[in-house]
Amino acid sequence: MSLIAAWGLSKQFGDFTAVDGIDFEVERGEVFGFLGPNGAGKSSTMRMIGCVSDPSGGALRILGMDPSREGTNIRSRLGVVPQQDNLDEELSVAENLYVYGRYFDLPRSVLRTRIAELLDFVQLSERASDHVEPLSGGMKRRLTIARALISEPEVLLLDEPTTGLDPQARHVVWERLWTLKRQGVTQVLTTHYMDEAEQLCDRLVVMDRGKIVAEGSPRQLIERYSTREVVELRAHDQVSVLTDALRRLGERSDGYSGDPLYERVEELPDRVLLYTDHGERMVAQLGEVKPESVLVRRSTLEDVFLHLTGRTLVD
């Protein structure tokens, strides 16, 4: 049985539909992601899973229970890492874990050992008695993750776990989340970073304007909705001229297999993307077309999102 299952789940705020009838299932032990731009309805979905927001429509089952009737019981078995840190900055690092553990009615003796273990896990043992306020953003996020784990939850919910962190701090957080995954902790996360979704998620859904537009593993999604490689051509002023030239070029074949040179063209404000399985062959055929720079790269979830919605994830 799935740990979390939703059918036609929706959330309205007045006239605004934040989540518009979505279906998904999360299995035990997997890392499941909601990928989408800001305002796609990811956080609203997350709040419903966290039992702090009642669904407006559809059905939701978490650990086999109905959140509108058993919110308290469900929350006692979830660990939540909110998008906006809500640590107590005047209390010490260890006190933050202690007081949160007490909300779950965990006995002091249990908390004492768990706090030591968790601080060790998130590499904050040396800061145990320091105040939270001067800690770096990455340390605070790691502390919030430790806090979410204090009750040994069956599911860990992470809303934008690395937003606002510098690259190095992000990698430390990712590395901790991988370790949890190896230990079998089920994780549900939202992100608007395609690299984060690719790195962490076993399976994900792409959300846009309250709806799920695609579902699968990162690899499946790329195979289904993009080509193996992408040629990026930059041209600051004359993107449309470049696009036209590339369209004419596309009427020819690649000279090897007889296939078209590329499958699709996407025009962005400062560059043109050519979707093809053979990037270097494409570049060799550019001939008269002279962009400012050319780059061949592998397809990512960003390309999947662009193909599905016609827009970029982060702008």
């Binding site: 966290g50 702090v52 308290t72 019981n73 929350r75 006692s76 979830l78 939540v80 909110p82 906006q84 809500n86 640590l87 107590d88 900055e89 949160y100 909300y103 779950f104 009615d105 009750s151």
Partner: peptide, 11 residues
């Protein structure tokens, strides 16, 4: 401080 918000995510 969002103290209540943190409490609300607990039981």
């Amino acid at each position: 401080y969002r103290t209540y918000v943190a409490m609300a995510s607990s039981p």
